[in-house]
Design a protein around this nucleic acid. Structure first.
Length: 356
DNA sequence: GACATTTGACCCAA
DNA sequence: TTGGGTCAAATGTC
């Protein structure tokens, strides 16, 4: 077997090569009359390739002990992102630590999402969790305020996951989402109890001037019924699914299922014309989501700045809301057997902040 | 009344 | 001292 370092190098070359090839393809498309959808798909591949390449570099660069397992052995990755495991261990050993220190040591990652300004309803990620806004602040050097969200069930289930939403200064349709901590809440709770108003719902109201009354609670069951995936070896789930085209990184850690561990997916997971569960759903058994992150073309942004920031938070937390994303039927047989569902957090990888 | 967001104040690490 | 993150009172919505 090749060494991890060798494989990382090869994977890096591969991803960069793919990015280059797809860029060329896109160029050709732009010169032709290719349908926008095809161009979007290529864009997604380009972005995912660079995402993966960067990830590889970061692992290799910031963590010399990173040991990406090879695709031949498994798509899951062991030994990487040890900072998170370290955090976990520390946390486990110091449960009496004060909250601020706990938060400081929480694992953190970010993702970038791009909104569709025309129909914000099909915005980026649905992370499957319910968030409550607890603050907003203008950050030095940033044009737009940063919004702070915590898990709605912080007090009920002692879930300390938080999320920050920061609009990009450069691209009005791009937002940086920073997730901190992992969800410890049991989403079955959120599914059996009518969820509170989600940020997205409220924010969409702000932007579209109407309420989605009842849609969240009503649409979910239908959606859930339309897409039921049984992952028997892991857990049986009724799984509202959201897809993300933003990243092709799946996170799976067999030993620590509640810690997302990146795994590179092979080409079978993102072939053109097919929809692949490129992202591991979060969560607990009752709630597994694929992100509906959609890099949508377009950008005649017509929302106000504040509104747009809200939209993104909305999309970042399209809790139980199929509105927030595109629904696709999943063929369970096409799912990678190593595709973990019992992840507490589902996210689109863009960047890990650890070690940066 | 319950639960949401807003927003100024406060805490604390750098 | 500064700036990011969080708290909590005020306020809004259902």
């Amino acid at each position: 077997m090749e060494s991890a370092a060798t494989w990382q190098y090869n994977a890096l070359i591969n991803e960069l090569t793919q990015g280059l090839e797809k860029t060329k393809q896109l160029r050709n498309h732009l010169w032709s009359t290719s349908p926008p959808e095809a161009q979007d798909l290529i864009l997604q591949k380009i972005l995912s390739s660079y995402d993966k390449a960067l990830l590889i570099l970061k692992w290799g660069g910031s963590n010399g002990a990173a040991t990406l397992s090879t695709p031949e052995t498994s798509v899951s990755v062991h030994g990487s992102l040890r900072s998170e495991d370290l955090n976990k261990n520390i946390k486990d050993n110091q449960d009496d630590m004060n909250a601020s220190k706990k938060r400081k040591m929480q694992h953190t990652w970010t993702e970038q999402v791009k909104i569709d300004s025309e129909n914000g309803l099909e915005g980026p990620t649905g992370d499957g969790f319910s968030w409550r806004k607890y603050g907003q602040k203008y950050i030095l050097g940033a044009k737009y305020p940063r919004s702070y969200y915590r898990c709605t069930y912080r007090h009920v289930q002692n879930c300390w996951a938080t999320k920050q939403v920061q609009r990009s200064d450069d691209d009005l349709t791009v937002f940086d989402l920073t997730y901190k901590g992992r969800h410890t809440c049991n989403l079955s709770f959120t599914n059996t109890v009518p969820p509170p108003a989600t940020p997205e719902k409220q924010e969409l109201e702000l932007n579209y001037g109407h309420r989605f009354q009842g849609q969240q609670s009503q649409a979910l069951p239908n959606f859930t019924n339309s897409l039921s995936v049984s992952t028997e070896d892991l857990v049986n789930v009724e799984m509202p699914a959201y897809f993300s085209f933003q990243s092709t990184l799946a996170f799976h850690d067999e030993e620590n299922p509640y810690f997302p561990i990146p795994a590179l997916l092979d080409e079978n997971h993102h072939q053109e014309g097919t929809i692949s569960p490129q992202l591991i759903s979060p969560a607990t058994s009752e709630s597994n989501y694929f992100s509906a992150s959609t890099y949508l073309r377009t950008p005649n942004v017509q929302h106000s700045e504040a509104d747009a920031a809200d939209i993104i938070s909305a999309h970042a937390s399209t809790t139980n809301s199929p509105i927030g994303g595109m629904a696709f039927l999943i063929d369970p047989t096409k799912l990678d057997p190593n595709f973990g569902f019992n992840m507490p957090e589902f996210f689109t990888y863009s960047d890990f902040e650890h070690g940066q």
